[in-house]
Computed example of a mutant assay.
Amino acid sequence: MRNVVVKDASAAVAGLRDGDTVMVGGFGGAGVPRGMIEAVLDLGVRELTVISNNAGSGGQDLSLWFGARIVRKIICSYPRSADVFADQYRAGDVELELVPQGTLVERIRAGGAGLGGFLTPTGVGTVFEKGKQKVVVDGREFLLEKPLHAQFSLLKGRQADVLGNLNYNKTARNHSVVMATAAEVVAVEVDELLEPGELDPEGIITPCIFVDRVFLSRPA
């Protein structure tokens, strides 16, 4: 079995390029991979498409990326409370694809499962149906929602073993479980690194088959 431990956040995000799509875990301040967010800034990449629940809420989160103007587009559910993003959006400097939260998670899950999309009644008859295919099933209208994929998923875990099996800290899990299935490179910063066998198998939330890089987060 492979050892997926890397030295630090910089090694975890190595290979990220201009124009890549990046999934970033976190819900408000919970489960945000702060070390890798800072490391991406050091890479000097530009024109990123970001998939996340929200667009930052100030501090050491996605607000840093918007402050550095490295994001071209964000696909998210809750851009409110993100002042830096809001200023750029109003100025027309960044693109927003607003997606209902359940739809966002299911689009990511569809991407990870290799599906061509899924049907949902959410958004029918609203602005969310613009540009989307409608499908009628048993007399009811549904929207065809397309899957989401990324080059990188940047996640925050609680514990991982050196093989990449990991768990999360309560609600800090948020969207990370599905994001771990839908990217070419899945990088995770964790609070504790363990040897194989030290994690309770029943407590493993994301198995190692989905994880490419793990590093120990520096103390806050």
Rank of each mutant, 00 (worst) to 15 (best):
Q88A: 10
I204D: 00
Q133S: 12
K132P: 06
V162E: 15
A187F: 05
C208K: 12
L163G: 10
D8I: 03
L155I: 14
L119Y: 15
G28N: 04
R2H: 11
V162W: 10
D87G: 08
G56W: 02
G59E: 12
V50Y: 04
L154K: 09
P196N: 04
V32F: 05
T103E: 14
K7A: 14
A110C: 15
Y89C: 01
D83T: 14
N167T: 09
K146G: 09
F27G: 07
V136I: 14
A150N: 06
S63G: 09
G197E: 07
L98H: 13
L154N: 12
E106M: 14
R72G: 02
V177E: 13
S63W: 03
N53K: 15
G92T: 04
V178C: 09
V45A: 05
N3L: 01
Y89K: 08
G67I: 05
D8G: 07
V178F: 11
R140K: 15
D212M: 01
G116R: 13
E184Y: 02
K132D: 08
D93S: 08
F27S: 13
T122K: 14
F27N: 14
D87I: 10
V24H: 05
N167H: 07
M36Q: 08
D93W: 09
V32E: 02
V135T: 11
C208M: 15
I37D: 03
V6D: 01
I51Q: 08
V185E: 04
A180V: 06
V6G: 02
V135F: 11
V137M: 12
K132F: 06
V5Y: 07
D8S: 08
G197K: 01
A113C: 06
V185C: 06
F152A: 11
L41R: 13
L143A: 09
D87A: 15
D18A: 02
R72N: 07
G19D: 01
P147N: 07
Q60L: 15
G139E: 09
D20G: 04
K146Y: 11
T206M: 01
R69H: 06
S52V: 00
L41S: 02
F152Q: 04
N53M: 11
D200R: 03
V6Y: 05
D18T: 12
V135K: 08
I70S: 00
L104T: 09
L194E: 00
F118K: 10
C208S: 15
P121T: 12
A110T: 10
L143G: 09
V24R: 04
Y89Q: 07
R69F: 00
S81Q: 14
V5G: 02
M179Y: 10
H149I: 13
S217A: 15
D200H: 05
V214F: 01
A187Q: 07
L62E: 01
V177H: 05
G67R: 02
V211D: 00
S81E: 15
G59H: 04
L16V: 15
R46D: 04
L115T: 02
L163Q: 12
